[in-house]
Design a binder for these strands. Structure first.
Length: 309
DNA sequence: TGGAAATGTCTAG
DNA sequence: TAGACCTTTCCAC
């Protein structure tokens, strides 16, 4: 259940521990056996995230495109470098083979009881439905439950990338902001729907959509066409900051203005991290009005009818 | 043990 | 808009 920040962290993990290495690729589950055979034995040369899509490049001009969808996750084991200096290190705890798993994609989880921290064997046997296993001499990545997992040629990668709207981690410049503003403000579709459209902006999912709109005090039903350009620019800039923060922490922390204690509490308690997401019926932190939930484009949309008026 | 839910996207009608 | 798809987790029974 990842949004853009998670996929960027996954790309960083591959960049740190897999790029430059020869990869043994397999499909323990069997459903990706043919694709894995194409990649097996080649060297990973590139790792890129755009929005929620991951592109891993190999030295023979083949690419692996992965979209985690709702349930997908990567588990990293073996040698795992910290992906960001400010993040708590879930992976490498000093020893080169501190085989602590890092799961990325449905929340990043430390090991639970029963997980094998000091795994005596490497690689460990696959657990569950592992679609793809990518292995170097020291590191291992297991992919489970992706919506998309396919081997592409460079021209096909270009097509897939061209379909994606701007991602502030990829395009930090003013051009990307202008593209976003133009696409958001040229349609009559509700802004709550446009923010989820990956052709308008890449990487926003159901949590960030609700939170960005609350932070802007913008009614999700507002038609894109009627959103003033400066408000649209504000949405882009807020998304830019939230995304960078999410990549840094590995956590979606969308409430701001908290004192240290409240902040620590919110970090520890998932339900306290957000202004409105999953808070249906609870009082708005700002005005006390019960948070509303409704279905927009097939997803649960949370919002405060008083603040976002 | 069974069902529902989950940070997503695509297709058919 | 409904249904399909992919997998795991959590909670009620």
């Amino acid at each position: 259940m990842p949004e853009g920040h998670t996929v960027h962290r996954i790309a960083l993990q591959f960049r740190a521990d897999f790029v430059g290495h020869r990869i043994a690729a397999s499909s323990p589950q069997g459903r990706f056996a043919a694709g894995a055979a194409l990649l097996d034995g080649s060297t990973m040369v590139e790792s890129r995230a755009i929005g929620k899509q991951l592109f891993l490049g190999f030295d023979d001009d083949r690419w692996l495109r992965v979209h985690l969808g709702l349930y997908g996750a990567w588990d990293f084991r073996g040698r795992i470098s910290p992906v960001h200096p400010e993040s708590p290190v879930l992976g490498s705890m000093g020893a080169p083979r501190a085989a602590r798993a890092v799961r990325m994609g449905e929340g990043e989880l430390p090991l639970r009881d029963g997980d094998d921290v000091a795994a005596p064997e490497f690689p460990p046997p696959p657990i569950g439905q592992v679609r793809v296993r990518l292995l170097t001499e020291e590191s291992l990545a297991d992919l489970r439950g992706p919506t998309a997992c396919e081997v592409l040629q460079p021209d096909e990668v270009a097509v897939a990338m061209a379909r994606l709207g701007p991602d502030p981690m990829v395009d930090p410049g003013p051009e990307a902001e202008a593209v976003f503003v133009e696409r958001l403000t040229s349609r009559a579709t509700p802004v709550g729907q446009l923010l989820m459209d990956q052709a308008v902006v890449s990487g926003i999912g159901n949590v960030y959509r609700a939170e960005i709109l609350f932070r802007a005090r913008l009614d999700p039903h507002t038609r894109g066409r009627t959103v003033p350009a400066e408000v649209a620019r504000g949405l882009w800039r807020d998304w830019t900051e939230l995304l960078a923060d999410g990549v840094r922490r590995g956590v979606m922390m969308t409430r701001d203005g908290l004192d240290d204690d409240a902040h620590a509490l919110a970090l520890a308690d998932q339900t306290a991290r957000h202004w409105v997401y999953k808070r249906a019926g609870l009082p708005c932190y700002v005005c006390g009005t019960p948070i509303q939930v409704e279905t927009m484009a097939g997803r649960n949309l949370y919002w405060c009818p008083t603040c976002q008026d």
